[in-house]
Simulated scan of single mutants.
Amino acid sequence: MVKKNIWQKNNRVFYVIGSLEVGGAERHVAQIAVRLKKRGWEPEVFVLTPGGPLTRLLNDAKVPIHGVTLPTWVSRLFKNKRLQARVGLMLTSVALIYTMWFRRPAVVHFFLPAAYVVGGLASLFTRVPARIMSRRSLNNYQAAHPFFAKIERYLHPRMTLVCGNSRAVVDELVREGISEQRLRLIYNGIDLPPYDHSLDLDAIRAEFEVPDDALVFVVVANLIPYKGHADLIKALAKIKDELPEPWSVLCIGRDDGIGADLQQQANSHGIGPNIRFLGSRSDVPTFLRLADIGVLCSHEEGFSNAVLEGMAAGLPMVVTDVGGNAEAVLDGVTGYVVPAHSPEHLAGALLKVALDDGRALMGDKGRERVREKFSMNACIDAYEALYREVGAQLR
């Protein structure tokens, strides 16, 4: 009876996520929270590590944000960093339990493994009517964290529903013991307007010192080993003498510690001047619009927003066959799908599309595919249907 009353009295959706830094999952949560707010829902966000650039987006939309900043007395009292982290985790867990009790959401929705483990366990001490977990990557991370993998499997049957953002992710969840009846597939969605308005591309190329006649590749991925930048450098080194001159690669994404090594690798292959690491950017659509070819050469993915963004900008995409990449890119139609960890195959696909006079048509087909299947409106519709389905189950 309590669950029924809570659901009928509010439509509050409580999201739990690790941070509000600029990442695919973080941007996704911020975007759906803002859109649902406009549609009359009451989204709120609990962040395990408060702060981050996306905080402003939620604040501007008046979406409440909760979280705990580690008090200064903790660092003064506990000098050991590991002990500080444990105290911080305890305080965060207590705050999360209290917030869920106090705010009384109709549904709590966990995104990413850390939020699932911490938030999922915390939610068991509350009277939350419904729990949903969304996984947005393959479960490769579990090999390095077997204890947390056990916690996830403990939590799985305690979720009302579980979501994956690609068929590859959903299939892995089935193998982890979740029944098909409790699994839902919700693809990522892309806001299309940023890719529709006209831009003075010549002026933008001049601003960033990109020659008007340059062939431009663009990669939107944080500098993390599994994103495959090293494979891309090796692939480009193989075809550097066959690519039309001049050519350039724009790498957009936060440096998580390997940027200097990647630059050194590029220099050693004689292509250092061709590759530019631009760091994290808030104007990604602009760089996608001035590019000619999009690339994502990850070793693992769930379902990449970067691929959809490149397609929305009208770029033919060259991607690795991991996660949901092949569900987005139609091989030979909107781009090319190649094996991961294979600079040879990557090089062949990059050269093929670079020398293809009809690559703009591939980009046009990719843009149309995003409009039909991967728009943000379609994504928000799916989340609304998900929450209404949960509500119906609780009545």
Rank of each mutant, 00 (worst) to 15 (best):
V295G: 05
S268P: 10
I233L: 06
D283G: 04
E242H: 14
E245G: 03
A266Y: 02
L308P: 02
A235L: 02
G314F: 07
H269Q: 11
G335R: 11
T334K: 00
V322K: 01
H269L: 08
N267R: 13
L278T: 04
L262R: 05
D256F: 09
G302F: 04
E242D: 14
L232G: 02
L262G: 03
S248A: 11
A235I: 11
S304T: 05
S280R: 12
G253V: 14
I239Y: 06
C251M: 13
P273T: 08
D256N: 14
G324N: 03
G332Q: 11
D292Y: 03
R254S: 09
H299Y: 09
G332W: 09
Q265V: 09
E242F: 08
T334M: 01
G272F: 09
K238S: 13
H299I: 11
A266E: 13
D261P: 05
A235G: 06
L278I: 05
V295A: 07
P244W: 10
Q265R: 10
S282V: 09
S280M: 12
F303Q: 15
W247G: 13
R281K: 04
A328D: 07
H269E: 12
P316V: 12
G294F: 07
D255C: 00
P285G: 08
N274R: 10
A306N: 10
R289M: 09
M317L: 10
K238R: 15
E245I: 12
R289N: 08
D321F: 01
R276L: 04
K240L: 06
Q263V: 15
